[in-house]
Design a protein around this nucleic acid. Sequence first.
DNA 1: ATACCCCAGATTGTATCCAATGTCACCCCA
DNA 2: TGGGGTGACATTGGATACAATCTGGGGTAT
Lengths: 230, 230
Amino acid sequence: MTLTESLRDGNASQRIADSLRESILGGELSPGDRIVQEDLSARYGGSRIPVREALRLLESEGLVRLVANTGAWVASLTLAECSEVYQTRERIEPLLLRFSAEHLTQEQLARLDSLAHQMADAHGVEEFLDLDRQFHLGAYENAHTHVLGPLVTRLWNTTQPYRRAYTQLVGDRNRRIFHDEHHMLVTALHDGDLALAEQILALHIRRTRLHLERHPELFDQAPNSKETPA
Amino acid sequence: MTLTESLRDGNASQRIADSLRESILGGELSPGDRIVQEDLSARYGGSRIPVREALRLLESEGLVRLVANTGAWVASLTLAECSEVYQTRERIEPLLLRFSAEHLTQEQLARLDSLAHQMADAHGVEEFLDLDRQFHLGAYENAHTHVLGPLVTRLWNTTQPYRRAYTQLVGDRNRRIFHDEHHMLVTALHDGDLALAEQILALHIRRTRLHLERHPELFDQAPNSKETPA
DNA sequence: ATACCCCAGATTGTATCCAATGTCACCCCA
DNA sequence: TGGGGTGACATTGGATACAATCTGGGGTAT
């Protein structure tokens, strides 16, 4: 079964989209970078058709910006937009946590605790970012949602480049409160105090947002033409 | 300028997606209906390429369900999924209202009030649904958001077929409380009492959800294979 | 009678080719 | 010397043709 994994779903566009998404989330591509269809089709050994569908998919996820007859770029966010995403997360991630918490096993709680500890010793920006993501999304693992879970993942993805830039900028400063909040969250979950866990999570996201907002220089300054259709 | 309107954005896929979206929201297509690429390409006089991109777009909006090498269907929701959407709305629409409220003009408030009144005399299901949608989305008109606004529109769209089915089912019953809540919201906005407005909106969405949940027969019963990637 | 298998038709996925559009550099002119 | 226009090039959008895959019905064996 592992042989067919390379062509999972049976379509190439999914594979290309997955690979491109990883490149963006991993920082190999940065906001504003131009994406040329033919480069991708050459890289993946196919035609431009699946590439185009992959780009459409990533655009709908907010990772790519398409302009008709012109081209594609890795999506960038203004500070206002990033703040918007964080305020949205502040409202919905506690709900997702609620869905998940009632099904979390002791093993999963132990893993969250382990991740929270590992982050204290994390060397380098990438390891820190990865552990943070694993911690939060891991807490939602048992939510079994079809809408909210993917939505939260999407919000994490679109802001990932800016979390990276921020983490690189501030280094180890302010990291203590970050760890403390994670441990408080684990404790609240362990105690079964869901109301407290929700509050801690909301405050954690809120504080992170306020810290991000202190560094407007990290963000896109001039939003060219980003209409909101609705 | 109106001549070029038919090919707006310069790409056909957008036009096809818009048309198909209208068909789904308008009830011409129902959840579970099969969508065949060639039918659409014949209907719009093009090839299947833009049709495929349109279907991908609508899939990402949650209006269409694609299965590789098999086909496309108008998306359906289980009761649990619909409930999830409403609980999400309950958390984020008050936030969107907050963004919008600070910029709402007197004219816009008057229009909301007018819409709330018109709904009392609405004849037929379609007019009622349309006015309700105009009322709520109209309240968010001045939010000037790039993430939250489109997200809320998307959540409205995916649940539209079930609002229609519910409205057809219950007729005029329970409609009084509906109107009362709308008028209370307008009053709170008029008074500048944003905290109250947010609460009324959340309770309005919550009560609607609870009413919907009384009719599980309206929803998809057996969710075939809807994996949540994250 | 029923369960399974297999093949034909229908439908989707992809490649290649051509058209349409935007970009950019160069040139002309004031 | 600077600004505007124009043309060639690069890139994207779309159509046609072909390959791959799934579905469903009919036949066969148990």
